[in-house]
Amino acid sequence: MKVLVPVKRVVDYNIKPRVAADGRGVETQGVKMSMNPFDEIALEEALRLREKGHASEVIAVTIGPQVAQDVLRTAMAMGADRAILISTDVDCEPRVVANLLKAVVEKEQPGLISMGKQAIDDDMNATGQMLAAKLGWPQGTFASQVDIADGHATVTREVDGGTETLALTLPAVITADLRLNEPRYASLPNIMKARKKPLETLEAASLGVDLTPHLTVVKVAEPPQRTAGIIVETVDELVQKLKTEAKVI
């Protein structure tokens, strides 16, 4: 079984994003970019499945300009066997990403798609579910544990207030939550080896997908600064305010 791992190149999670002065978006010029942390977890899971003998090949795929290759090299340094760059300068929304990935899935025929539950830039948390819908595959979102046996994936999901376990008939889409695993480091020798692994480039335009977004960003702004409230003198006053004014207890 092949496992396809879509990964996204995002502003490194250590960087505090800064809204550009003109409100176009967030400053990315000269900012460190890395693989989306949730995608690293998804990739780690795929690699472990291969190491356990459930998967034969792990393929990393990303969508973006030529520079997005660096996350594919990272993916291959971590252990992906090969990688595909869907090349485009257009900023693709999750819907378009799902359509492009669907085209790749039809070509590669993976038995499992392992991807991050969301990207830490747009925080949309949608691509995996949309891709599963478009393929007609079952989905195991926000996964904290994955077991593969007999053509099924048993997925434990992080849900509000607990965990839910589902049995999915493969092929399926799994989206990784934070606690699924602790991704490995790419070691130096593996980084060196990754330079020789195959990286295929597909032009997004050649996949027959309309890249026009349905959602446009009108403006990006800093969140409003919180302002100081009031000082209360007694505990009773505090409890009173929380009950009647703020209505939170």
Binding site: E182, Y185, L188, P189
Partner: peptide
């Protein structure tokens, strides 16, 4: 890489290399 605060290896431990 992957040494904890107490100096013990963590699950993602990767040893240094001689270059």
């Amino acid at each position: 890489m992957g040494i904890n605060r107490q100096g013990k290896p963590k699950p993602d431990y990767t040893s240094g290399m001689i270059l």
